[in-house]
Design a protein around this nucleic acid. Structure first.
Ligand SMILES: [Mn+2]
Ligand SMILES: [Mn+2]
Ligand SMILES: [Mn+2]
Ligand SMILES: [Mn+2]
Lengths: 146, 146
DNA sequence: CAACACACTTAGCCCAGGCTAATATTGCCT
DNA sequence: AGGCAATATTAGCCTGGGCTAAGTGTGTTG
């Protein structure tokens, strides 16, 4: 058991930031916009906290915000948002294949998605594709799970 | 995209608590004991922070601590420690199968391990066993990854 | 048995990311 | 236009989990 590696550069975005961006993009894609009240309701966080975070994301250049008016993602913000969304979707597809319960999948994915490196993502992506051709193998897995 | 589910009961242990317990058990298993200075060095955290956390874990009944003397895990603490260790090992085995780099595996596992429900654990366990019988499939996955 | 190094604890601080209560702005409806 | 409900912001607070600096124990060794 080697020691934890020295922590490198502060890593891209915190899990909170990723969760906000993911929600904001989701809201924009389904309603056309993302207001403070929508984000708060959707994330089950107080409006005050959302306002706070939005101002931070604006300061960090991930979105453009005009007080009382609304927000749009910047290119940087949209890139991050699409990125976390991909991780979420891919993990969900993978766990669905294993026959897990939807609530369990959601819970686990919402946590795991923040810790998947690009190469791990590619590996699971590839594995998912391969597994789709293996119904017998999947059946055996699902049997164990239930 | 449904809203985040209402947060249920505060869930067992925080990721920090799990990481401490995992390390403590690891140290006990390899050196026979876990002192503040060992935990701090191994986790790359200051001794002061370790003392602090250890006192919390004592208060929560996860270990018994005597100031300046040492600590032992309680049954509850040992159970949690073995549990997180199992998740760590299983995830590591799984990702190894996919041909990922050891550092990447360590990094990702260290984060993901805190977000794996029991049923997801069983599913990945079963999948890992099945995949071991599928060298051709694994070869195709590894090809994509590298 | 004294002194010193090392281990440990305490005190006081910081930041992320939540919260509530109070206040401000908007926009719609009469 | 004026008023009201909904929305948003600000102020002030809290907890978890880090940190450093300063002080306290302990055990080895001359
Ligand atoms: Mn998430
Ligand atoms: Mn997600
Ligand atoms: Mn961990
Ligand atoms: Mn671990």
């Amino acid at each position: 058991m080697p020691p934890v590696p020295a922590k490198s550069s502060p890593r891209s975005a915190s899990t909170a930031v990723e969760d906000y961006l993911e929600r904001i993009l989701g809201l924009i894609n389904t309603k056309g916009y993302a207001r403070v009240v929508d984000i708060a309701g959707s994330l089950r966080i107080s409006q005050a906290s959302v306002t706070n975070m939005i101002q931070r994301l604006d300061a960090e250049g991930l979105l453009k915000y005009e007080k009382y008016r609304g927000l749009v993602l910047t290119t940087a913000g949209e890139t991050l948002a699409k990125n976390i969304t991909r991780r979420h979707e891919l993990l969900t597809d993978f766990l669905k294949l294993l026959g897990l319960d939807a609530e369990v999948i959601y819970h686990d994915v919402e946590g795991m998605e923040h810790h998947i490196s690009p190469s791990t993502l590619r590996a699971i992506e590839s594995l998912t594709a391969q597994l789709q051709r293996q119904p017998a193998l999947l059946a055996r897995v699902r049997e164990q799970v239930t």
